[in-house]
Simulated assay, not measured.
Amino acid sequence: MKIVAQVKLLPASAHDADALAATLRACNRAANAASEAAFAKGLKRRNALQDAVYHRIRADFDLGAQAAVRTIKKVCDAYATLKANSKAGNLGPEGSKRRTRTESKPIAFREGAAQPYDDRILTWNLDQQTVSIWTVAGRIKGIPFVCSPEALKLLASRKGESDLVMRDGMFFLIATIDLPEPAPREPDGFLGVDLGIVNIATTSDGQIMSGRQVNRYRKHHRDLRKKLQKKRTKSAMRRLKSIRRRESRYATQRNHIIAKKLVHTAERTSRGIGLEDLSGIRQRVTAKKDQRARLHSWAFAQLGAFVEYKAKRAGVPVVHVDPRNTSRQCSECWHTHRSNRVDQARFVCRSCGIVLHADHNGSRNIAHRADAVWQRGAVNRPRTA
Rank of each mutant, 00 (worst) to 15 (best):
G206V: 04
C76F: 05
T123C: 11
K289P: 01
A34Y: 06
E276Y: 06
P116I: 03
S132M: 05
L9S: 05
E186I: 10
K231C: 06
H368Q: 14
L122T: 04
Q375Y: 01
R98H: 13
L240S: 04
S270W: 07
T269S: 11
L20F: 02
I354M: 02
L49N: 04
K241I: 01
V319L: 04
F347W: 01
A367N: 04
A236Y: 04
R216F: 03
C349W: 00
R246G: 12
I197E: 03
H357F: 00
T23I: 02
K141R: 15
S210C: 02
A21N: 09
H256Y: 09
C27K: 02
A40W: 07
G112D: 15
G377Q: 07
A37K: 14
T23C: 03
K141M: 06
P11S: 06
R346D: 00
K141S: 10
R25G: 07
K2H: 12
A67V: 11
W298N: 05
K241W: 08
V342M: 00
M166F: 03
C147H: 04
T286Q: 15
P317K: 04
R98P: 00
L356D: 00
A14G: 09
M209C: 06
I133Q: 05
A21W: 07
K87P: 00
A33T: 08
L24H: 02
A314S: 12
G362R: 00
R244N: 12
R185W: 06
A156R: 15
L82E: 13
R294E: 11
D60R: 11
A113C: 06
A183T: 15
V342I: 10
D62Y: 12
A33Y: 13
S279H: 11
F306H: 12
D194L: 02
N199I: 09
S331C: 09
M170R: 13
N215R: 15
Q50K: 12
V146I: 13
D51Q: 14
A370V: 07
P106A: 06
A151M: 07
C147A: 15
L49V: 08
A259C: 03
R364M: 10
M170C: 10
H55T: 12
D343S: 01
A17Q: 10
R99S: 08
G353A: 01
D118I: 08
I121W: 01
R338W: 04
H335S: 02
P323S: 09
P11F: 08
A40H: 08
F347Y: 14
L191D: 05
S363H: 03
H15T: 12
K141V: 13
A68D: 05
L278S: 08
P144V: 04
Y117D: 02
G92P: 01
C333Y: 08
